[in-house]
C-alpha cells in the first residue's frame, strides 16, 4: 500500500522478547494504521497488546521487524494509558498547561491547545478542581484530553473507559468517533467488545504475542470460509482465543 492510501504508521513482522524471558512477547506482528480509521486491539491479558503499543510509541525497540511511517514528516503519536497518568494534586487546567509546556510550542499555541482540549472533553466546569477531587469520569476525560494536546496523527488508547459510568463511556466513545472522522488514526485496546464494535472498523486480535485475526471487522464477523458467521464480536474473540482462563 502506498502513502496515498492514507497509511500513517505501519508495523511489520515485529518481534520483541523481554530480557530473561524465553517466549517472545510479540512474534511476527503486522499492523497498519490509516488516517480516519480505528483499529480495535483485542486479546486476553498478557497477549502482547501493551508491548505492541510501547513499540509503536517508540519506548521500546523491536528485536525484529520495524515500525515505519509513510510519507514526509514523522507522524505525531499520542498515547492515553489505562492509568490516570497525570498529577492528582494539580488542577485539571494546571495538568493540561504543564503537559502542553513540555511540547515545543509558542505560549499562545500551547494555551490554545489547552482550551481546545478542555472544550473537546468538556472539562471547563472542573478546570480549577484538583484532579484528586474529580470523579472517575472527569479523570478519564482529563486523561484523554492530555493526549489530545499533541494533536496526534495517531492516537493509541489503552482501555480508556475502565471504571466509568455509561454516560461517560458514551461521551468518550463519541469523542473517539469524532477524532476518527477528523482523520486521526486510532488504535483502541480494550476488553470491552461492544466498544470496539461501536468505534472500530478493523480489529487486530492477539494471543501469546501472535496475530490470531486481523482485518475488516465486518468481513471477519462472517467467519472463516465454510463456517457459520459469528453473532457478535465476543463470539469471534472466544472462537480464536478459546475458553481457558489466562491469569
Amino acid at each position: 500500500m502506498s502513502a496515498d492510501d492514507g497509511l500513517v504508521i505501519a508495523a511489520e513482522q515485529l518481534v520483541y522478547r523481554y530480557p530473561g524471558q524465553v517466549e517472545p512477547a510479540l512474534c511476527g506482528v503486522d499492523l497498519r494504521l490509516v488516517h480516519g480509521q480505528a483499529v480495535g486491539l483485542l486479546g486476553p491479558n498478557g497477549s502482547g497488546k501493551s508491548t505492541l503499543i510501547n513499540l509503536l510509541i517508540g519506548l521500546r525497540t523491536p528485536q525484529g521487524g520495524r515500525v515505519h511511517h509513510a510519507g514526509g514528516r514523522e507522524p505525531v503519536v499520542a498515547w492515553v494509558p489505562q492509568e490516570y497518568a497525570f498529577y492528582p494534586d494539580l488542577s485539571c487546567r494546571e495538568n493540561l498547561h504543564f503537559f502542553a509546556s513540555m511540547l515545543d510550542l509558542p505560549a499562545i499555541e500551547a494555551t490554545r491547545r489547552v482550551e481546545a482540549a478542555m472544550a473537546s472533553c468538556m472539562l471547563h466546569e472542573f478546570a480549577d478542581r484538583r484532579a484528586r477531587h474529580c470523579s472517575g469520569g472527569v479523570r478519564r476525560r482529563l486523561n484523554l484530553s492530555i493526549g489530545l494536546l499533541q494533536q496526534p496523527d495517531v492516537l493509541l488508547l489503552d482501555e480508556p473507559t475502565v471504571g466509568v459510568d455509561p454516560q461517560t463511556r458514551a461521551f468518550l466513545l463519541e469523542r473517539v468517533r469524532e477524532l476518527v472522522r477528523a482523520g486521526t488514526a486510532v488504535l483502541y485496546a480494550t476488553h470491552y467488545m461492544e466498544e470496539v464494535s461501536a468505534v472500530c472498523s478493523h480489529i487486530l486480535l492477539l494471543d501469546h504475542g501472535r496475530v490470531l485475526a486481523s482485518g475488516d471487522l465486518a468481513t471477519l464477523l462472517h467467519g472463516p470460509e465454510g463456517s457459520a458467521p459469528f453473532d457478535h464480536l465476543e463470539a469471534l474473540f472466544m472462537h480464536y482465543t478459546q475458553r481457558p482462563l489466562r491469569d
Partner: peptide
C-alpha cells in the same frame, strides 16, 4: 501511574 512514560511520549 505511567506519568513518566507519558512524559517520554
Amino acid at each position: 501511574d505511567g506519568t513518566l512514560t507519558r512524559l517520554a511520549t
